[in-house]
Design a protein around this nucleic acid. Structure first.
Length: 958
RNA sequence: GGGCGGUUAGCUCAGCUGGUUAGAGCAUCUCGUUUACACCGAGAGGGUCCGCGGUUCGAAUCCGUGACCGCCCA
């Protein structure tokens, strides 16, 4: 029994349990042993996060594909899991400590702090998994992984060690993006350039050997800068080699104001003569471009800031080197002053000596950390890097060759653009939460990279014995006795960028580096579904790592979807307060409604503007479906054993069979092309506009009528079509369809595992060969459709049924329209006279008398040679249908209506004729297009003739 | 500055490799309780397909150009 009202919450809670208990989503089910695998790895959400609208869209799309392919007989693995999200999670826990006024991370120490993070993970780590389940995600939950679990950590270490061995990971001292708040390096991608209103300061640097005079321009050179405080670290001034103004100065030196350092004027193309004064100060230790300039000219790098972004001058040997007397006094005065305070004070000091020429307001881009939102400092440190340039090559080639394709294809351009200009990837982070870098340092700082500490120590001891730092005897002792080597080597404190471990996700989750059968079976994966915002962060890096370690690209298709925005199109953000919580929508309208809304909006080009109203509309659709199933139930509709829709006799039933097959084809093709919106819209239209509006209505007389073949077949077909709908809708609306599947008939199994209406066109020869090679004993009885070439392209097409039902629909529609137009109240039943009907119509009409009377509010249907006088005359598929409505018809109004119709017919005739009169059209256009045009003309001419006749008769009345 | 996307009904959007009478939902208006469903049904109105030029027998669709909006990278 179907409940009277559709209550998503009840159904969804129950179905989650049913699916869970039945292990329906488990990969490698025995009955699918011989089926082709279909794999998707989930973009792992942050373990301590909670479901937002982006997740809802992303996972809905993945689930649609997984459920679709599962029904098509594939062995589906949707690999779930979560990401440890280094910085984000560490920040959350640190904030929590602060709020609770507990000791901070540094006071706690690394070990204690990490314990604390794990504890937080265990408390809140299930939240998002449970939320994904509420959305209906059909992941194989038994395989859930976490980027920091044992297996994945092993993969991380192995990858690090191997890349290091191959020279693809190395340590380097260069400028990094330094977050002075989080006290860690971050990668280029984690830096957001934000427009900031600042100033351009024009500073006067006195030329060596001349007495500085603010009034005398020959005694100084003007440099423009947005960051005056970094001048303390200047080691050069650059001018453009072609800049005539400065030709004479190239090679000379200036004396750095306040500091007294003598620095050179160099010629470098980096300096833009159009910008500022055309001369720039060069601070290699605090600016990425200056770093390059410095390299080209052998300039010193002097770092004048500390980790927190304060001036670091006292005891700074680099800074103090070569400075005149009195420099230390200045150093002490400014030491440990914050960079922004220092900016102000240094400018003041420069001004007081006349070193500031002028100050211009200047808007420019300033780098900010995407997590801390503090200003990022280019900072000179030792960090670990991945040689991304080398790894990118195969990753570029794989997309070029089509081994991996992006959908939509335009994203490939973005991908290439970035990959071809890729910079070394800084992977070390000065954090605690993450995979600690497997590198150890000996007493002299030499690095030993190894998978374990044991291995590292053995390398180290071997090395130092050879170098005669320790004796062979000492080496042996230390190898045997842990206590003796305590402190001999120390591990690198840093951890890896979170994205380092996510880059391995498509194979690490399958069990790599162990020799797991899943790796062989499910790698490479089929589709990756993700938003465009993480193409660089994640997709590109998975491509690099996958190709390097597995020799195959990790996925054949990358489907990029758009972002979900609020109803006005603004990006959802906490600060804007416009965040829509998907769980609230699920609570109110059901997960199915939310999913269907997202699927229908998931077109390629636009971001999705989501409103609760949108979800409501789709909830209404679900209710409609629900009620249509109740209708079938009330009429005792059921599919008898052995029922074959193709053998239906009744035109109506043949018609719906055809329409259902057509819908199945549309949905299938759309899903194969990842056109989620088309697939969902096709179902929306089929269910509402075909099944509910017409089929069910037209079937009513048969269902309510006397028992017999007509009623029997109709009952069977109503149920059959309903089942087709449930199957086709299942990927989109899994809960309601599974529920209805269960309660509407006795079933062999879950809908989630039921066969898809349209069978795949059979395996390709390659797939057959692959399956044969995979061998293993196969039981033909349990072989899924996939293995047996099975071409099911039957569409039950039946032009006669199409014509007949089409006629009924047109007739009813037109009568309704004219009745509404003429304000005939529904209570007034009118008669219908089919005038001069063809033999076909005379034969057809009696079969539909009941239906037409019901739907068009008629009292009677009769035939006549010609329409009665004073009747409203409609043209239905070329024949006259007259409604004699004495006294009701407003003759003038009817005349106007006919005039309008005639004008329309005239326009059609004219359009067709002008085309046909065009010789070029007839000569160039495709034959069927020309033929179509001829038919249009004929039809319009016939229509006009009938309308003129009708008008003639109307004249006789008046 | 380089690149990408968009501009179609009041609103949100479909419209694919040129040929449709340019569609849908919402909103608006009219009508309605007929054996599923008011979370419903029937009907109606509503368009310079951003502008200009070109290709073509034919352009919302292809090309060029301009305007405006959004995003990414410097």
């Amino acid at each position: 029994m179907i409940e009277k009202t559709y209550q998503p919450a009840d159904i969804e809670a129950r179905m989650s349990v049913v699916w869970e208990d039945s292990l329906a989503f488990k990969a490698g089910r025995p009955d699918r042993r011989d089926a082709a695998p279909f794999t998707i790895v989930i973009p792992p959400p942050n373990v301590t996060g909670s479901l937002h609208m982006g997740h809802a869209l992303n996972n809905t799309l993945q689930d649609i594909l997984c459920r679709f392919e599962r029904m098509r007989g594939r062995d589906v693995l949707w690999q779930p899991g979560t990401d440890h999200a280094g910085i984000a999670t560490q920040m959350v826990v640190e904030r929590q400590l602060m709020e609770r006024q507990q000791p901070g991370r540094r006071e706690m120490g690394r070990e204690k702090f990490l314990e604390r993070v794990w504890q937080w993970k265990s408390e809140s780590g299930d939240t998002i998994i449970n939320q994904l389940k509420r959305l209906g995600a059909s992941c194989d939950w038994s395989r859930e992984r976490f980027t920091m679990d044992e297996g994945l950590s092993k993969a991380v270490v192995k990858v690090f060690v191997e890349l290091h061995r191959d020279g693809l990971i190395y340590k380097d001292k260069r400028l990094v993006n330094w977050d002075t708040k989080l006290l860690t390096a971050i990668s280029d991608l984690e830096v957001q350039q934000t427009e900031v209103k600042g100033n351009l300061w024009y500073l006067r640097y006195p030329i060596e050997g001349k007495t500085f005079d603010p009034e005398d321009r020959s005694t100084f050179i003007v440099v423009a800068t947005t960051r005056p405080e970094t001048m303390l670290g200047d080691t050069g001034v650059a001018v453009h080699p072609g800049d005539e103004r400065y030709q004479k100065l190239i090679g000379k030196s200036v004396i750095l104001p306040l500091v007294g350092r003598k620095i050179k004027i160099v010629a470098d193309e980096y300096s833009d003569p159009e910008k500022g004064s055309g001369a720039v100060k060069v601070t290699p230790a605090h600016d990425f471009n200056d770093f390059e300039v410095g390299n080209r000219h052998g300039l010193r790098r002097i770092s004048v800031l500390d980790k927190e972004g304060c001036l670091d001058l006292v005891d700074n040997e680099d800074y103090l080197k070569g400075l005149p007397e009195g420099a230390s006094q200045f150093a002490e005065e400014f030491n440990k002053v914050d960079r922004f305070v220092a900016r102000k004070r240094i400018v003041e000091r420069l001004e007081s000596f006349g070193f500031v020429e002028r100050i211009e307001p200047h808007t420019h881009m300033v780098p900010h950390g995407d997590r801390s939102n503090s200003v990022i400092e280019p900072y000179l440190t030792d960090q670990w890097y991945v040689d991304a340039k080398t790894l990118a090559k195969p990753a570029i080639a794989a997309v070029r060759s089509g081994e991996t394709t992006f959908v939509p294809k335009n994203w490939e351009k973005t991908y290439f653009e970035w990959m071809e200009n890729i910079q070394p990837w800084c992977i070390s982070r000065q954090l605690w939460w993450g995979h600690q870098i497997p590198a150890w340092y000996g007493p002299d700082g030499k690095v030993f990279v190894a998978e374990t500490e044991e291995e590292a120590i053995s390398h180290a001891l071997g090395y130092y014995v050879e170098q005669e730092v320790i004796t062979a005897e000492q080496g042996r002792e230390m190898a045997l006795d842990r206590n003796k080597r305590d402190g001999f080597i120390t591990r690198d404190e840093d951890v890896l960028d979170t994205w380092f471990s996510s880059a391995l996700w498509p194979f690490s989750t399958l069990g790599w580096p162990e020799d797991a059968p899943e790796v062989k079976r499910y790698y490479p994966t089929n589709v990756l579904v993700t938003g465009w915002d993480i193409i660089f962060f994640w997709v590109a890096r998975m491509m690099m790592m996958g190709l390097h370690f597995m020799k195959e690209a990790p996925f054949s298709t990358v489907y990029i979807h758009r972002l979900v925005r609020d109803e006005k199109g603004a990006k959802m953000s906490k600060s804007r307060g416009n965040v829509i919580d998907p769980l609230n929508l699920i609570d109110e309208y059901g997960a199915d409604a939310l999913r269907f809304a997202l699927a229908r909006e998931a077109a390629h080009t636009h971001d999705i503007k989501l409103s609760s109203q949108l979800v409501e509309i789709n909830r209404n659709f679900a209710t409609k479906l629900w009620n249509s199933c109740r209708f079938a139930e009330m009429n005792e509709c059921a599919v008898p054993d052995g029922f074959e829709p193709a053998k239906a006799k009744e035109p109506l039933n043949r018609w719906i069979a055809h329409k259902a097959a057509e819908a199945a084809r549309e949905v299938t093709e759309a899903l194969e092309a990842h056109s989620f919106n088309e697939a969902a819209s096709a179902m929306y239209r089929f269910v509402l506009n075909i099944y509910c509006d017409w089929y069910v209505e037209l079937a009513k007389p048969a269902l309510l009528g006397a028992d017999g073949p007509l009623k029997g077949e109709t009952r069977a077909m109503v149920a059959w079509a309903r089942d087709e709908i449930l199957k086709l809708l299942h990927p989109f609306m899994p809960f309601i369809t599974e529920e209805l599947w269960e309660v509407t008939a006795k079933r062999d199994g879950l809908l989630a595992l039921a066969p898809w209406p349209l069978k795949p066109a059979g395996p390709t020869p390659e797939q057959l060969a692959m399956l044969a090679a995979a061998a293993g004993p196969t039981d033909p009885l349990i072989s899924p459709a996939f293995v047996m070439p099975f071409f099911d392209h039957a569409d039950f097409s039946d032009p006669e049924a199409e014509a007949e039902i089409g006629w009924v629909i047109d007739l009813v529609t037109q009568i309704r329209s004219v009745r509404a137009e003429m304000n005939i109240p529904p209570a007034t039943l009118t008669a219908l006279v089919l005038a001069g009907a063809s033999a076909e119509t005379r034969e057809r009409a009696p079969r539909w008398t009941d239906v037409i009377k019901r739907m068009a509010r008629l009292s009677d249907i009769s035939f006549a040679d010609r329409a009665p006088d004073g009747a409203v005359q409609l043209l239905v598929r070329g024949e006259v249908a007259a409604l004699p409505i004495k006294g009701v018809v407003d003759v003038a109004a009817e005349r106007t209506r006919l005039d309008k119709e005639i004008a329309k017919a005239d326009a059609d005739i004219k359009r067709a004729e002008s085309k046909l009169a065009n010789e070029k059209f007839v000569a160039n256009a495709a034959e069927e297009v020309v033929e179509e045009e001829r038919e249009k003309r004929e039809a319009a001419l016939a229509r006009k003739a009938k309308l003129l006749e009708a008008q003639e008769r109307l004249k006789q009345v008046s």
